[in-house]
């Protein structure tokens, strides 16, 4: 049986100069490769960690999977169905099955909408009539551990952790199979990071979700992911199980990355 999500030899390029500009400057290749020849797969119920520093292309890779940026070469298969080359309108169905959580917990919520409509939004977008959006919003809010009072709150009235929970609730609204989480703990306090990771872990157990976690935070990814890929300048420099990579890092870049994490012990 094939894995839920299979990415093979994926390549994403960005234009650095327009046609005219490229001609004028004599550039023969006005592109940069944000993601180069990347392959991995994600099984049901698994957590895959994508680790890299800024500019490594990890966020672009995540966005390419959900169709926010176009991939040029390679393939992305979801449940055996090819996604590369789909038109935006054909992506609709995919977006019911793959949800994405963005970095900034508060800024990724529409600033002038109440939590109630943030969570019910996907039902309106996909024109789902057989479910009562209001009831669903209550159910989802409860699922992520928030009480009903939050339905009437605006994003700026939420703390980072609360906003992150709302983001999780919204990502879950259409019963997706995969959640792509871009830095799920960025900007959260240490004690709150644990709450969110525990929440995501519980939801994974209960709902059988698969996670693709994009992060630069090694201590966090170590506790949550089953397998890891270390990304550098658009390529995977090392892949393996989390234990393998933390215990026997092979690539010098991975070694450097691990060594750079400050030790919380003054000795």
């Amino acid at each position: 049986m094939p894995d839920l999500l299979e990415v093979e030899h994926l390549r994403v390029r960005f234009r650095t100069a327009g046609l005219v500009q490229a001609l004028l400057k004599g550039l023969d290749d006005p592109f940069i490769d944000a993601v180069m020849d990347v392959s991995f797969s994600l099984a049901k119920g698994e957590t895959f960690g994508l680790v890299g520093e800024s500019g490594s292309g990890k966020t672009t890779l995540g966005r390419a999977i959900i169709g926010l940026v176009q991939a040029q070469e390679g393939s992305i298969k979801f449940e055996g169905k090819e996604l590369v080359g789909l038109k935006d309108s054909q992506y609709q169905e995919v977006r019911r099955n793959i949800a994405m959580m963005f970095q900034d917990p508060i800024a990724s919520l529409s600033p002038r909408k109440k939590v109630r409509s943030q969570i019910a939004e996907p039902f309106k977008i996909h024109n789902i009539k057989d479910k009562d959006p209001d009831q669903e919003a209550r159910r989802l809010l409860k699922l992520v551990g928030l009480h009903e009072g939050f339905l009437e709150a605006y994003p700026h009235q939420l703390s980072g952790g609360q906003a992150r929970r709302v983001g999780v609730a919204r990502a879950l609204s259409l019963d997706p199979k995969v959640i792509i989480a871009d830095e799920p703990t960025a900007g959260l306090d240490v004690s709150v990071q644990g709450e969110i990771l525990n929440l995501m872990n519980r939801l994974q157990r209960e709902l059988g979700l698969s996670y693709l976690i994009i992060t630069h935070n090694l201590p966090v990814v170590r506790h949550v992911s089953d397998r890891l890929a270390i990304m550098y300048l658009g390529r995977f420099v090392e892949t393996g199980t989390t234990t393998e990579i933390f215990e026997k890092p092979a690539h010098p870049y991975t070694l450097g990355l691990l060594a750079a994490v400050p030790e919380p012990d003054p000795g």
Partner: peptide
């Protein structure tokens, strides 16, 4: 902004 990207990722 991220919230517009988030809406697009939901299919809006």
């Amino acid at each position: 902004n991220e919230f517009i990207l988030a809406e697009r990722s939901l299919g809006a």
